[in-house]
């Protein structure tokens, strides 16, 4: 359906990328009045106070790291631990969670196409990061380190930072990966580059309820889930790397304790993921296309 309307638009006599950009990017949005008032109230003292507060927070995080990191028994010698990564990203609660007994430290490295990718660990909990706007909802956080076998990963401020994209996502055994991945599961990520190694913390709705079904974690050099990178076997419900894919397409086991699974709750969650889209027409777009694989391609393309 998306292709149809694009074809319609692009063949239209009025098709003009300039007009499309005007339509898509123009905005009549204005700042909230209270924000404007707040800004107008600034004084030098407030400026100083604001900056001091931020510095104090950073120092506190560093002190926490200095005190607590040596107690961790985890960490490959050349990588930061998940807790250290969380501290780098100024998520002290998440760092603390990664140091708790609830955290699962994996530390498994796989190499492919000149990259060493290490699945460092995973933890679940509520309100662990500022990134998580739904603090009353349990979320899962996994940390992955990506290093080049020769050279360094580009810094986040470098222009070529996104030249090789990476997509890191959990997948649920038995669920179509193009429909159920980090993007549809309230996901997000934070990235930092330290000493030439890229660390990525991914966040999504809690995975623990799926523990009895089985989970995988994929890392691919794509913008989104790609059917070119992975083959999905309906019988086993698992994905495997497509050997013909020219790029990174790794699969890790995500060994959560099956006892934490809640099949019924998980099913309700899965059902709810697409309920919202029924009203927006998204499901109408996806389901028919999904049967012949086109939906996946469209999802990938629109994110490039």
């Amino acid at each position: 359906m998306r292709k149809d309307w694009l074809r319609f638009i692009m063949k239209s006599e009025n098709y003009d990328v300039d007009l499309l950009l005007k339509e898509a990017l123009s905005s009549t949005e204005i700042p909230p009045p209270e924000l404007v008032e707040k800004v107008k109230c600034f004084s030098k003292e407030e400026f100083d106070l604001k900056n001091t507060k931020r510095r104090t927070f950073s120092v506190a995080a560093i002190i926490m790291a200095l005190i607590l990191v040596p107690t961790s028994v985890f960490a490959a010698w050349h990588f930061l631990s998940p807790a250290e990564v969380a501290n780098r990203l100024e998520s002290p609660a998440l760092a603390q969670a990664f140091r708790s007994d609830d955290a699962l430290l994996i530390n498994e490295t796989k190499s492919q196409k000149g990259y060493d990718v290490t699945f460092l660990g995973i933890v679940s909990g509520e309100g662990l990061t500022e990134l998580d706007s739904t603090v009353d909802k349990a979320k899962s956080y996994a940390v992955v380190a990506i290093a080049k076998q020769e050279g360094s990963m580009p810094d986040t401020s470098d222009e070529d930072y996104d030249s090789v994209p990476f997509f890191v996502s959990p997948l649920i055994k038995g669920q179509e990966p193009w429909l159920y991945n980090i993007a549809s599961m309230g996901g997000g990520y934070s990235t930092c580059v330290v000493d030439g190694v890229m660390y990525r913390i991914i966040e999504c709705d809690s995975l623990e309820m799926f523990a009895d079904r089985g989970l995988q974690l994929i890392v691919s050099s794509t913008d989104f889930y790609s059917t070119e990178a992975y083959n999905y076997d309906k019988a086993s419900g698992l994905v495997t790397p497509n050997p013909d894919f020219d790029g990174v397409n790794l699969v890790f086991d995500l060994p959560l304790d099956p006892k934490k699974g809640d099949y019924e709750k998980a099913q309700q969650y899965l059902d709810s993921l697409w309920e919202d889209n029924e009203t927006s027409g998204a499901e109408e777009d996806l389901v028919p296309a999904n049967e012949n694989g086109n939906a996946v391609e469209l999802l990938e393309r629109v994110t490039k």
Partner: peptide, 20 residues
């Protein structure tokens, strides 16, 4: 971006202009 690194939501972005 340099200091706090990139934080990105994979969920659909908020609409730029809700009214429109």
């Amino acid at each position: 971006k340099r200091k706090y690194a990139r934080r990105k939501r994979l969920a659909p972005m908020e609409r730029l202009d809700e009214n429109r």
